[in-house]
């Protein structure tokens, strides 16, 4: 009985020590944004990639990201994103990139919203260059600029 108590106590001590010294779990795929470049996508489709990387701030009707590519350029991440306007009217949206570091934290301050005009039924490619080597992942955020805001 006494031996059992000692074993339990020893186990508890070693567990507690293990918890204290353990470093936080590293991201599964450090230095690689999901699916970026596409050869790292592991068979993911462009739709999946866009779904993972693009968010809309509110609703952005008629405008979609139809192509997304990225590569490392001078140790900095470079993103090419194609915006397509399916409407028969000119559409104005704004966009910005949010840069994320290896641990999933914000790698840079908020960028300015950049307005862009898309002609009717047309596409335009925007380029995003990371401001720092710490940025290993990103999110592209779109905002409807035609919408009146209070």
């Amino acid at each position: 009985m006494k031996r059992n108590v000692t074993i339990v106590m020893l186990l508890a001590v070693s567990l507690a020590a293990g918890c204290g010294s353990k470093s936080p779990k590293a991201p599964e795929e450090p230095k690689t944004a999901f699916g970026c470049p596409m050869e790292h996508a592991g068979g993911a489709t462009m739709d999946k990639l866009v779904e993972a990387k693009v968010t809309n701030a509110g609703s952005v009707p008629d405008v979609k990201i139809t192509n997304l590519r990225c590569r490392m350029q001078s140790d900095l991440m470079r993103i090419d994103a194609t915006l397509s306007n399916s409407s028969s009217d000119v559409r104005r949206v704004s966009y910005r990139f949010e840069w994320v570091d290896e641990a999933g934290f914000k790698a840079w301050d908020d960028e300015s919203w950049k307005p862009i005009m898309l002609y009717e039924k047309s596409s335009q490619t925007i380029i995003g260059n990371a401001p720092t080597r710490k940025a290993v992942d990103f999110k592209l955020v779109l905002l409807d600029q035609d919408k009146e805001r209070k």
Binding site: Q73, S74, L76, E111, S112, K114, N129, P131
Partner: peptide
Amino acid sequence: AESMTRSLLN
């Protein structure tokens, strides 16, 4: 400012 900086960094 953003456009010039990012271009200069490259």
